[in-house]
Nucleic acid binder design. Sequence first.
DNA 1: GCATTTTTGTTTCCTAGTCAACAAAATAAC
DNA 2: GTTATTTTGTTGACTAGGAAACAAAAATGC
Lengths: 160, 160
Amino acid sequence: MNKEDQLIIGFRDLYNKMVLLNKDKMEDSLKGYMPSEIHCIEYIEKNADSNVTKLAESFYMTRSAISKITKKLMEKGLVESYQKPDNKKEIYFRLTKQGKVIYEIHEDLHKEFQERDKTVFEQVTKEQFESMLRFVENYNRHLDAEIKKYAQIGSRNQSE
Amino acid sequence: MNKEDQLIIGFRDLYNKMVLLNKDKMEDSLKGYMPSEIHCIEYIEKNADSNVTKLAESFYMTRSAISKITKKLMEKGLVESYQKPDNKKEIYFRLTKQGKVIYEIHEDLHKEFQERDKTVFEQVTKEQFESMLRFVENYNRHLDAEIKKYAQIGSRNQSE
DNA sequence: GCATTTTTGTTTCCTAGTCAACAAAATAAC
DNA sequence: GTTATTTTGTTGACTAGGAAACAAAAATGC
């Protein structure tokens, strides 16, 4: 296997393992809530005027999925929706008091994760860290461009 | 947001974007096959004597899921199973001729992806690359240990 | 102004994958 | 040996999320 593949597979494995660990840990302290629900709660708290579309784009999920998740979050009383007087189409979300409680529990959990992985980060120099960040940002930009490019081709193909 | 989070979110986004792009591309050249099916085909070809358990561990999926995927692959005639004379429990998989055709198509696609991302990798020095690889390996080892640790605690909790 | 296209969110149908229960074989304990 | 435990794979019930079709509002074109 070449080094490029090795790195990408390393990223993929990191992602999978984090998802797995987070899920296990969350089942303990946030029983009854799906990772995606927590994820939405976090985003809604951190981003003012978030709506279905923004959440979907940010998580690489469909609006359909987000629509269902937010609906469930509203039924559970964690999230409430509001609109702006000059726009009857877009529906925004904010956390309720109860939602903020869940948010804080998640924040604590997040700090716990950071503490857990601290040793790994301590072993890299500042320069190495910066270089990795640059690489990841660069790669992300590249993929964004590719996704955009492909979306155009895709829609062109559809209309043919 | 701190730098550690930034890096992890960068990894996560990279992963999500690759999944998205791969899916789109595969829908074109490998219509009718799920990414996970292709993934299994790839693993089976590259790893001799692969079985449900090994596939599951490698993909961080349940044996249940892999069992269904391999069943489907056998029904489609892409994969066949075999056993060893001294073991009546474990069931191994290998590709059929037809499966190898799909494998090759996927390999070509994979090369296409490499070509697509070549520019990103060209911008890092050999030293930077090595340093990233070490970090990713290190982080993976760390998470493996955490998963193992947690699995023990988890099973202890269950039996209480 | 009005007609068309795009954006936004929802709903219905469907499927991939999880969970839990299970059976059969293998291994460990004794 | 045989009994208990672990490993391996499968199945059925369930659910999270995707795809497509849709309605309503907004933006664009004329």
